[in-house]
Design a protein around this nucleic acid. Structure first.
Lengths: 180, 180
DNA sequence: ATGAACTTTCACTAAATACTGAAAATTCAA
DNA sequence: TTGAATTTTCAGTATTTAGTGAAAGTTCAT
């Protein structure tokens, strides 16, 4: 049996390196999905933070300006992904993230539905309405394709709604049974 | 009963207006999801075009430069969302889009899995591996949270894989039964 | 009521991303 | 094989998006 050295400061350094990697990559992932990098990084930081953090903590940790930190903290609050907590006898505002992965999923789903899917459905409906009675043959092709898109997006929307309204304890075992 | 005037040129104008709206909004939607606006617009244009279009057609329609059109046509080809068709006796390359909405969904799912979800899984695994044996209590919180994320992302990934491998004719009736 | 602590705003700057257009490379009909 | 047609590249530019920091605004313990 080999003895493993457990130097505390080495551990801390290894942890901090992994943590930085995680924050950086979470930011990059956000970028790829149309979410501001800093917003995603702050979210990552708060998700893994054992305690709530203040704006100053976040500014220091991520090396960003007050304005930037502030804007993105508000944005995350708007999404419902973080909430502010106040400590008694302190003026400063602290922030903590929702940590339950299922809840995070539900929040993101709900918000993207509201912000992007619903408007898209509106546009598709509008396009169909404006062209379905036209005699032009190109218009007919257009209407057909937008109808197919609408049908699909509406189905996806209703599936997501139903899933995001469910309890994780109901969905996950079911999903594992069907998809594992 | 009112008679509806069916002036052909009015119809054409109404169609073109709806079509432009669709292209513009599809572009905006792409942007919100981290896809280059022009790429999404070209995709929209080809999805609703009755015939394959050449680079020049697209340049003119969307009022973009050759370089821009070219780059984004290649990118779309890389995703597998469009393919080039050559007409016999002609040098020019034409492009047509996959129009089947289910197939489009499968392609986008497969590509985003490959480009973003798989790397994310890699990062999470790496973070867990590097921290799971550390004694630091913050590291323990970190490992726990990244594990929860990994578990969730892997489940989502396998569900998407399974769905995207299925036939629409199998999935849609099933989905409607469960989620409508 | 005061003013220190803290939050918010916003004009300006920086960085990232997308686009242009012309030149170089390639292709293929004649 | 030639050269006109077409595709590809890419250095330079434009546009969009994100970030800064200082000043203005707000809040609350005293």
């Amino acid at each position: 049996m080999s003895t493993k050295p457990t130097n505390t400061s080495t551990d801390k350094a290894a942890y901090l390196a992994a943590r930085d990697e995680f924050i950086a990559q979470w930011g990059a992932l956000g970028s790829a999905w149309g979410i501001n990098r800093t917003m995603a990084q702050i979210h990552a930081l708060l998700m893994i933070s054992p305690q709530p953090l203040s704006t100053d903590d976040i500014m220091e940790d991520l090396q960003i300006s007050r304005g930037n930190a502030h804007t993105n903290l508000r944005e995350l609050t708007g999404w419902g992904l973080i909430r502010s907590v106040i400590r008694k006898g302190e003026r400063k505002e602290y922030f903590e993230a929702e940590k339950d992965v299922w809840k995070i999923f539900c929040i993101v789903t709900r918000e993207r539905k509201r912000r992007e899917i619903r408007p898209a459905i509106g546009v598709l409906k509008d396009c169909i309405e404006r062209t379905e009675t036209l005699r032009d043959p190109d218009a007919a092709v257009f209407t057909k394709q937008t109808r197919a898109l609408l049908e699909f997006v509406e189905m996806a929307d209703s599936i997501l709604s139903k899933i995001a309204r469910s309890e994780q304890s109901k969905v996950v075992p079911w999903a594992l049974k069907w998809f594992k």
